[in-house]
Amino acid sequence: MNLSQIELSWIKHSIFGLMKIISENCSGVIGILVLSTFLSISFLPPILAQPTVGSDSSNLQMERAKDIVLELVYDDQNQPQYYSSEIFTQVCETGECKPVRIRLNWDLLGNYLNYAMPKGSILTKMDHIPFNATDYQKFASILNDRYSVLEDFNLSQLKGPKEKATVQEIDGITGATPKSIENAIVPGAVYTCYTIWHLAHVSIKDTILEKSQLLRNEEILYHFIDHENSDYQRWAIDNIFQFFRHSQQLVDQVLHLFQSDKVFLKKHILQQIPDSLLAQRSIQNLLWPQYPGLSYSLQLILLRRYSDIPVDQEVKDLLESYRSQSNQEQLSLFQLIRTSH
């Protein structure tokens, strides 16, 4: 998918829905900023993707993604909460399938959250038969399966040889459903399932991640560093180490996490912290006294990170006191650190 082709509208949609930001994303940066009060999302006409008949399936996907309108929803603390999009799309190449109108929601890192049917919209199967409750239930579980086999198919593979087609297997147009995806679709709605699943999990994720990079500022990072979602915390840590390593306050905030009992977050910090920070005396004085209380795997990461970074004499002395509880591998790393300059 060519991100530069993606046209996005951003709506800062607080609970009162007051602000709208439209960006024309020709070069991957926000181009135009329009503040418009009292303009809610309903004023944005959904765009119907019009794929070229006969285009191959990857082009079709690209066309669909191109016309997605993403909205950023804020919580009542005015913090970004999730992305949402009401999508109106064709689901098959020929235009014979009934177009689908559906709302999809993603978290701020592009992970699919859930879907909702806009008022008056329904999903249909072959011959335009409406989904029943069981179909909707299955559809929800299909979308929730991040690792669906649908990921590995392109649209052209959804059709088998025509002579194998049966009424039960088709989705409004001729073509048999490959056996291999029968469990991953609602019977009679293969194109709908395929198209919406790809929109939920594949086509949009990178776009959202890119957009989230544009949200990056100190306020957001402070908000994320203590977020209950550990993915957000990792995102914040990565961004602080990459772009805000000179911000003492933000770095301190990260290192504060190192005092917690979150072993996996501590591991992430030790793996991602730049050498330039590890070389700082204040950070050495903070990390090394905690060494005995770390799990073995974290001890090894710390030792390896410092194996080619000069450490203070105080740290070297401290390491000596840890020798007695160490195994061969640790001792060899001690030796490397002791002889580093």
Binding site: S148, V149, E151, D152, S180, N183
Partner: peptide, 9 residues
């Protein structure tokens, strides 16, 4: 582990 069940005829 996770898996994908790719159906076969």
């Amino acid at each position: 582990a996770a898996t994908k069940h790719i159906r076969v005829a």
